[in-house]
């Protein structure tokens, strides 16, 4: 399979000796047009990779912010097909930034694994994270994605011991997503001191770059994680900006992109300014 765009991006990050920043935004949130504007603006705001959330009615690993974002996306009429079209439109303006979908299995299963893999590849999707599809259940989906050269990105978590990491690492490509807290998105805070050894274990087991997400909401926290991970993912903080913009009757796009820039700036500056002192890893919020 080809993971060309993902591999090239992580190689570039390594050469620059910095962590990548991966903003997560929800498809169709708050509307298709605005979601497309957000996607188009992300690379300039500092996104090294992009995670695009697939809207699902029952997102069992999401906290309230992303649950609400998914409902907004669905209300705006977004479907899986519509999301692939959105990605295709984004690809007209950006050929280099890897784009990873993140969602739940049922809409993909409903679409059909082969059809989905083919259409996702055609739209310019580089990978997909399926939250409720562990390795034990991923065989048929993985085969379809392999055939279409789309990466199935796996999740590792604080509950993954070394034996489990072997299961997770087998057959994965691109990078591994480390879920830094046991819990749903956007509730608990990641603790860099706990994340560092976990990232190292996942790197060793998989031989792949490790992106860390769940529990990263502030520039300070993003910077801390950036010192120990290959990439930092944040999402709830951005969909919350959409919600706040709607509430204030303001345009959502600039608010989201400004927040993305704040976190990505912190990630980019993190290693340059890092004191090699563990005090820095202490809680800052």
């Amino acid at each position: 399979m080809t993971t060309a765009r993902i591999d090239a991006r992580f190689a570039k990050l390594k050469a620059e000796n910095r962590a990548g920043f991966v903003p997560y935004v929800m498809t169709g949130d708050p509307s298709r047009d605005e979601a497309l504007e957000i996607l188009k603006g992300l690379p300039a705001a500092g996104a090294d990779l992009i995670e695009l959330g697939l809207a699902f009615s029952d997102p069992m690993a999401e906290g309230p912010p992303i649950q609400r974002a998914a409902l907004r996306g669905l209300k705006a009429g977004m479907t899986l097909r519509g999301t692939l079209d959105l990605v295709a439109d984004f690809r007209k303006t950006d050929q280099d930034t890897p784009l990873i979908l993140m969602g739940y299995l049922n809409p993909v299963e409903s679409y059909g694994y082969e059809a989905f893999a083919r259409d996702a590849a055609e739209a310019g999707v580089d990978g997909i994270i399926v939250v409720d599809c562990p390795p034990e259940e991923a065989g048929p989906l993985s085969a379809a994605l392999d055939a279409a050269e789309v990466s199935l990105i796996r999740l590792a978590t604080p509950t993954s011991d070394d034996d489990r990491l072997k299961v997770i690492a087998e057959g994965t490509s691109g990078f591994v997503y480390y879920v830094s807290v046991a819990g749903v998105t956007g509730v608990k805070e990641a603790v860099a001191a706990e994340v560092a050894p976990a990232v190292e274990r996942v790197r060793r087991a998989s031989g792949l770059p490790v992106a860390v997400g769940f529990g990263v909401r502030t520039p300070e926290r993003a910077a801390e994680i950036a010192r120990v991970a290959d990439a930092v993912v944040a999402g709830s903080v951005f969909v919350n900006e959409v919600a706040a913009a709607l509430e204030a009757n303001e345009p959502a796009v600039p608010r989201v992109l400004a927040k993305v820039k704040a976190l990505s700036d912190a990630v980019k500056a993190a290693r340059a300014s890092a004191p090699q002192n563990s005090d820095f890893l202490a809680e800052t919020v």
Partner: peptide, 20 residues
């Protein structure tokens, strides 16, 4: 052994829960 009844059943949960 995989907890399946024909094509049905299985263990479609987030990775955090798999060890449990």
């Amino acid at each position: 052994a995989e907890g399946r009844f024909g094509p049905y059943g299985g263990r479609f949960v987030p990775e955090t829960l798999m060890p449990l």
